[in-house]
């Protein structure tokens, strides 16, 4: 298993390099220069040229990439053009809100989705219809609309949660931290919940119809044990895989919610950086996202192997 993990991480290195190169050359295609963005619309060409020179943007693109890569390999991702902050610091600060949101939302959808899917498959009938109806509704509601509604009701009218912002888990404590995340998590989870519940329902229905379940029942194994020890484990494999994909899509989709809730996360940072031509931050952000995707895929593979002995990791 350790060898498997190490090999997967080793394979990730060239992948990250390719992603870094592609993103570096792609951002060069964006019209306009960071210097012009910093200096504003009224700057003279001379001022733009001077600033470009001091930022090293007058160098050939290949040489810029070489320099960036050289520094990146030493752990130095450069400094933001627009805030002067080091890119590593900016990313480190932004990763926490985004990962908090994505992980908590994924855990919530996984647990609730599994329970709902299981209940729908086991009980059938009215419960099944209710779960399907609720899941469909969740998927049909646009999350930005739900976010606006949640803010209006729970932040503005009932004053239960803050409307915007983020509190640090380390410095502000767990109460403020979670209270800033509740509304974004609900808005983000609504769509994913339906997907996970449907996947869980299908997986449970499939597992429950298998011969081994009938055999287990016939040999007198208690139903509860059949469900939790055998069916749950088998049904979890596809659910875990869908959850992993959902998590990755969630990371990409948090931008809108981070904007609505003014969460200082990766989505907001990347959006602001793209708008301001802050290429060094964009570049660093793409690397972080790629790394997270690689790690999540690895975790899914390991989890799948742990749940299903037929999947061998080599």
């Amino acid at each position: 298993m350790t060898r498997f993990v190490l090999r997967r991480l080793a394979v990730a290195v060239p992948l990250l390099l390719i992603v870094a190169a592609i993103s570096f050359f792609l951002v060069q295609l964006v019209p306009g220069s960071p210097a012009a963005a910093i200096l504003g619309n009224t700057a003279t060409q001379e001022q733009v040229d001077t600033l470009e020179q001091s930022l090293g943007l007058d160098q050939p693109v290949l040489s810029q990439f070489g320099q960036w890569l050289g520094h990146a390999l030493q752990g130095n991702l450069g400094a933001s053009y627009t805030t002067g902050q080091s890119v590593s610091d900016a990313l480190a600060q932004s990763v926490a809100p985004t990962l908090s949101l994505a992980i908590l939302s994924t855990l919530l959808t996984l647990v609730v989705g599994l329970v709902l899917g299981m209940a729908a498959a086991v009980r059938g009938g009215r419960t099944d219809r209710l779960v399907q109806w609720t899941g469909s509704l969740g998927m049909a509601i646009p999350n930005f609309w739900l976010a606006a509604l949640l803010i209006f009701v729970f932040a503005i009218k009932l004053s239960l949660f803050p409307a915007i912002g983020y509190a640090e888990l380390g410095t502000d404590g767990i109460g403020p931290w979670i209270s800033h995340l509740v509304l974004p998590i609900i808005a983000l989870s609504a769509v994913n919940l339906g997907q996970i519940a449907f996947q869980a329902r299908a997986a449970f229905t499939d597992a429950l119809s298998r011969d081994y379940v009938r055999t287990l029942h016939a040999t007198g194994v208690p139903r509860r044990r059949v469900l939790y020890k055998h069916v749950l484990r088998n049904a979890s494999v596809p659910v875990v895989q869908v959850t992993g994909l959902t998590f990755i899509f969630t990371l990409g989709g948090v931008v809108v919610l981070e904007l609505i809730f003014t969460l200082p996360g990766m989505g907001n940072l990347m959006l602001r950086s793209v708008q301001n031509h802050d290429f060094s931050v964009v570049q660093g952000g793409v690397l972080y996202f790629s790394l997270v995707v690689v790690l999540v895929n690895l975790v899914i593979d390991v989890a799948t192997a742990a749940l299903d002995p037929r999947v061998r990791v080599r």
Partner: peptide, 8 residues
């Protein structure tokens, strides 16, 4: 969390 938010 909601209770926690009243003072935060």
């Amino acid at each position: 969390a909601a209770c926690g938010s009243s003072d935060s």
